[in-house]
Design a protein around this nucleic acid. Structure first.
Length: 495
DNA sequence: TCTGGGGTCCTAGGACCC
DNA sequence: TCTGGGGTCCTAGGACCC
């Protein structure tokens, strides 16, 4: 059995905003998406006011004002840096940290609890302790009674406990206590070192670790215990019965109604469904979810992370864009950003896709959503080449009779620079970009990147990006970039 | 006139995640 | 007046091949 942890930062963006403002410690704080559009993070105090995730800002503005809510525009440079600090801290407990998103990471802690043979210390096989059914007495209910005939979904009919519980292995009481001590230490250390409050869920699979972290968040506020374990069968049954099926990782808003129609209300109900039935009636993804809930690992950490396949930069405009010149500036700056990001990640793109759209919510104005792609003669991450292709597409797509609200640039079929250069011979020579021109472009980009590191973001840029664009997204409540901008360093004054 | 079985590749659309 | 942005994976169906 593996010991998998999922560490999840509490109300991450809102917590980041509080780190450098201790005076906001107990105040409601919300963070807005780009363009100050809607709420993407809420501190616990803001949640208590009933402010919903994703709520449009203009709808809650009045409530926020009355209740004294601190409103912030998204400051993603700050959040990215604090996220990095959290992940770095986690390295103290295991080298196996798999960053899942800006505010979540999976940890494989198995090694800390193994003996020299690589087996969990003090673990017991159920078969060796008298059948091991003692802790699983509740299973008498499974094939009927309180949960109806769920166990018969799928041709295999009712489940026996062995099928439900993929592993007979149990943690010894001693190992369990050790895991709890470690969990507490991780949560406490991350909070002290980074200022970010976190919750930690632990279980034998990623899906169970995720479920455990939901439970830790749900109960943490009341109990003060910021971690939860889902290992032994009896605690899995008890806790999964208390977890709504919609809270399971992989069950979204479209799947939920279908699951309800099947009578699946809780994570426990889902765990009891025949996996083959799930594959036939849904897909392999849902089959895996069921297996994971049973303790069988199907979502594995990748030893070598897959290469990223695409990269996109898009923004909603702070105002409508109605002239080609402005649209060119917007697309140009997105393309510049995308190319610079690719260079930073050492990837190249095989093509570029440009799209633009109107509001889509205005009943009276025409709705339009257009996009177009083009392939490069050979994969590239050079800004001049990216720019000229993106601008060509923009001129084809743009319609001056519409009020555009959003645009984006996507780098298509990205691959590692090293992979691309090893496949060089596969590509035709590009008559428009002979070798000497490509070399000149490469040196230009290198210089550009160096200057922008040394003198700050956008210290040097292409004129086509525009100098003072009208369309820049709204960001009216932005906090200082305390940790990524020398000019924004917090100052401590002694009296 | 009859019309199998197996495979690949591509795309659009749908679902999920945070 | 005002409603993010950035990703991944899977499936079905069509075109095409032998």
């Amino acid at each position: 059995m593996k010991i998998i942890g999922l560490l999840d930062c509490d109300s991450f963006f809102a917590s980041c905003e509080k780190v450098f403002r201790p005076d906001w410690a107990n105040r409601p704080v919300v963070v807005l998406s780009n363009n100050d559009g809607c709420v993407v993070a809420r501190s616990p105090e803001a949640k208590a006011l009933g402010i919903a995730m994703g709520a449009p800002f203009f709808q809650i503005r009045e409530l926020a004002r009355r209740a004294g809510v601190v409103v912030r525009s998204g400051n993603f440079a700050l959040y990215g840096d604090l996220s990095r600090r959290v992940v770095e801290t986690l390295g103290r407990w295991t080298p196996s940290v798999d960053v899942y998103s800006i505010d979540e990471a999976f940890l494989d802690l198995t090694g800390r609890f193994c003996d020299s043979n690589g087996r969990l210390r003090g673990s017991e096989e159920a078969a060796e302790n008298g059948g091991g059914l003692g802790g699983w007495r509740g299973l008498g209910d499974v094939s009927g009674g309180d949960v109806g005939d769920l166990g018969r979904i799928g041709k295999n009919g009712g489940l026996n406990w062995r099928e439900f519980c993929a592993s007979d292995e149990r943690l010894s009481a001693e190992t369990r206590r050790e895991i709890e001590r470690t969990a507490e230490e991780i949560v406490e250390t991350v909070r002290r070192w980074t200022g970010i409050p976190v919750s930690l869920g632990l279980g034998p699979t990623r899906t169970l670790a995720k479920a455990a972290s939901r439970i830790a968040k749900r109960d943490g506020a009341a109990t003060g215990r910021k971690f939860a374990l889902l290992f032994n069968p009896e605690e899995r049954e008890r806790e999964l019965k208390r977890l709504p099926v919609g809270d399971v990782w992989g069950v979204g808003r479209r799947l939920l109604p279908a699951f309800w129609r099947l009578g699946l209300r809780t994570a426990f109900d889902l765990a009891r469904v025949d996996p083959i039935y799930m594959r036939k009636n849904f897909s392999i993804v849902q089959e895996k979810t069921v297996r994971e809930l049973r303790g069988e690992r199907t979502f594995d950490s990748k030893t070598r992370p897959e290469a990223q396949k695409s990269l996109q930069i898009s923004r909603s405009f702070g105002t409508t864009v109605e002239t080609l010149a402005e649209m060119e500036e917007a697309v140009s700056s997105f393309a510049s950003t995308a190319a610079a990001k690719m260079r930073a990640r050492k990837i190249v793109a095989s093509g570029v896709y440009v799209y633009m759209s109107t509001s889509g919510r205005d009943q009276n104005a025409p709705r339009r959503n257009v996009g177009l792609a083009v392939n490069f003669a050979r994969p590239t991450n050079s800004t001049p080449e990216f720019l000229s292709a993106a601008l060509r597409l923009t001129r084809i797509l743009f319609d001056p009779n519409l009020a555009w609200r959003k645009a984006g640039v996507v780098a298509l079929e990205t691959l590692d620079e090293s992979v691309a250069s090893s496949r060089r011979f596969l590509f035709e020579p590009d008559p428009e970009r002979p070798a000497e021109r490509r070399e000149r472009d490469r040196r230009l980009c290198e210089t550009l990147d160096k200057a922008n590191v040394a003198f700050g973001k956008n210290a040097v840029f292409f004129a086509s990006d525009g100098i003072k664009p009208r369309w820049t997204p709204n960001a009216r409540f932005v906090s200082p970039s305390y940790t990524t901008d020398w000019n924004a360093l917090p100052v401590v004054r002694a009296n």
